[in-house]
Structure formats: structure tokens, C-alpha cells
């Protein structure tokens, strides 16, 4: 198995990714993007029966909504808040002087009303809440968004900026649990079409600190998160390429999302790591598209 450095070097040499000089931040080639597009279309095709409403957000969201979501309780080190200069001419001169002298100039900035989206579904919950009580059959949404997580790494499969394709279900506990089970079946069908090796496992989010240890144990005990793991840069530590999450009433409570009966809604989502699945394809089928299995190319319309 190739190491992280070997695989990254191969991706750069074959012109699939372009370095920016920052770990986990890359440019993408036309072929890389065509693969992501093909994958996106394949996911849409397999989500046919969900009757999902498609919603698109920019890769940033309201800071107030982000704060309300509880993200900083669980993942303070992954968050990306946006700061900007808001001073006068004098303050601007000071900023440029700091820059010239290579001093830290970040203190001259102020936090804005915007943060980078940490997961595609985060801006969705306030929208759902604003619509009031949902219909009896609940709600289903389809989203794809650039997401940001501050976790610089030499592993090309752990990017700081990446796309997440999601289906999000809101409704009763029974409705969302059934949805998650159906997503696991569909996810397996997709990965099989792509001829990638995988296995499914119980997982936990990387919650912060000692409190986070307990959150992680709770999440595992209750099997709230499953991941579909595909080896990319390690056989021993395969990469989570799809995740199937049951949030219970976490977002329903935070946002006051109500079912048709007026109960607190439960939510679940399936997330496809678009870059990760694409990287898995290049890892297992090779850097040259011409060498890929015909069935895989057909599935992705490549």
C-alpha cells in the first residue's frame, strides 16, 4: 500500500491535484472534477425515491446559526470563522506596517457575521425550522456544499476544504431511522458499482476534550454513526468515504423543528465525501482514466 506522501506525490505528478503550498488545500484538474460530477449524478440517480428537495448554499453560513448549532461545543478546533478588517485609515496603516514587518496582523481584524460551512447540512436546519410544522411524511433534502475543517494534514484524503453531498431526512424517529437504513443499502450499491473495496463500521465524531470522549462513547454505544470505509492511503486505517448519521433530536431541539404531530423532530443524514471517493477511485483504478474498468467509467459517464 502506498503511503500518504507517495500517493500525494502521484496525484500531483499526474496533474490531478495542484498544490497551494498549504496542507489539505488543493486545486483540482478537469478530470478530477469530471469524476466528482459523475459521482454527483450517480448519487442523485440512487436518491431517486427520496423525493428530496434540492437546496444549495454558498460554502459559508450565518455565524449566529453556527453558534446556535453547538458546533463550538464539540469541534472548536475544526471551526473556520471569517474575520475582516473594519478600521479607519490610521488602523489600515498599522495593519500594513504589521504586514511589512511580518508581525501578526490578525488582531487588527474583527469577526464577521459569516463562518465557513463545517458540514453541508448545517445551514439547512434553520430553514426547516422556519417553515413550521412539517407534513406527515416528514421532510427530505438534497445538498452539496464545499465544507471547511481546520485539520491540515499531509494525507490527501484529509483535506481542509472539500465537498460533501448529503441527503437529510427530518421527521419521526421511525422515519429517519428507516431512511438511514435505506441510505446504507444505496451507499453500498454505489460503491459496488464503482468497484471499490469497502466495509461498514460503527464510528464516532472527533469530539473535543474529555467531555468529547464521553460524547464519542455515547455515540458508539447507541450506534448513531456508521461509516463506509475504503482504503486510500492505508489498509490499516481506511478512510471514511460515506457516513450515515442519526442525530436523534439534537438539531430538532436546537432549532425547534417540529413533526406533523408537534413533537420535536428527529434528523438523520447521509454524507458522501466527494473528494475522498474520487481519491479512492484514482487509488484503486489508477491515475490514467483509460485503465479504469469499463463498468466504472460507464457508471460515472466518463
Amino acid at each position: 500500500m502506498q503511503t500518504q506522501e507517495d500517493y500525494l506525490a502521484g496525484l500531483l505528478e499526474h496533474g490531478l491535484l495542484f498544490s497551494t503550498g498549504v496542507d489539505g488545500l488543493f486545486g483540482r484538474s478537469a478530470l478530477f472534477e469530471a469524476t466528482v460530477d459523475g459521482l454527483n449524478a450517480l448519487v442523485t440517480k440512487h436518491g431517486d425515491g427520496f423525493n428530496a428537495e434540492s437546496v444549495t448554499y454558498p460554502p459559508s453560513m450565518s455565524r449566529v446559526d453556527f453558534e446556535k448549532s453547538g458546533y463550538l461545543k464539540s469541534f472548536p478546533g475544526l471551526a473556520g470563522s471569517i474575520h475582516s478588517f473594519a478600521g479607519d485609515d490610521r488602523a489600515h496603516r498599522d495593519l500594513l506596517a504589521d504586514l511589512e514587518a511580518k508581525r501578526d496582523w490578525s488582531g487588527r481584524q474583527k469577526i464577521t457575521d459569516v463562518v465557513l460551512t463545517p458540514a453541508a447540512c448545517y445551514p439547512l436546519y434553520p430553514l426547516a425550522a422556519s417553515r413550521g410544522q412539517m407534513p406527515k411524511e416528514g421532510l427530505c433534502f438534497s445538498l452539496c456544499s464545499w465544507c471547511f475543517r481546520h485539520e491540515p494534514s499531509r494525507d490527501p484524503a484529509r483535506m481542509q476544504a472539500f465537498r460533501q453531498r448529503e441527503y437529510v431526512r427530518m421527521g419521526t424517529a421511525e422515519q429517519v431511522v428507516a431512511f438511514r437504513a435505506s441510505c446504507i443499502e444505496r451507499g453500498e450499491a454505489i460503491v459496488q458499482l464503482l468497484e471499490l473495496p469497502y466495509h461498514l463500521d460503527v464510528a464516532n465524531d472527533p469530539f473535543f476534550g474529555r467531555a468529547g470522549k464521553m460524547m464519542a462513547n455515547n455515540q458508539r454505544d447507541q450506534k448513531l454513526k456508521f461509516e463506509m470505509l475504503i482504503p486510500i492511503t492505508s489498509d490499516e486505517h481506511p478512510t471514511a468515504c460515506l457516513s450515515f448519521n442519526y442525530h436523534q433530536d439534537h438539531f430538532g431541539l436546537a432549532w425547534g423543528i417540529k413533526t406533523a404531530d408537534g413533537e420535536v423532530a428527529h434528523t438523520a443524514c447521509v454524507g458522501f465525501g466527494m473528494e475522498r471517493i474520487t481519491l479512492a477511485l484514482f487509488r484503486h483504478h489508477g491515475f490514467e482514466l483509460a485503465n479504469w474498468p469499463a463498468g466504472v467509467r460507464q457508471a460515472l459517464a466518463l
Partner: peptide
């Protein structure tokens, strides 16, 4: 008792 509240209680 929610997951979040159980953590606050633990602390």
C-alpha cells in the same frame, strides 16, 4: 437527559 446534558452533568 440528553447526550449534551449528560456531559455537562459529568463535568
Amino acid at each position: 437527559l440528553t447526550s449534551f446534558a449528560s456531559v455537562q452533568l459529568m463535568l
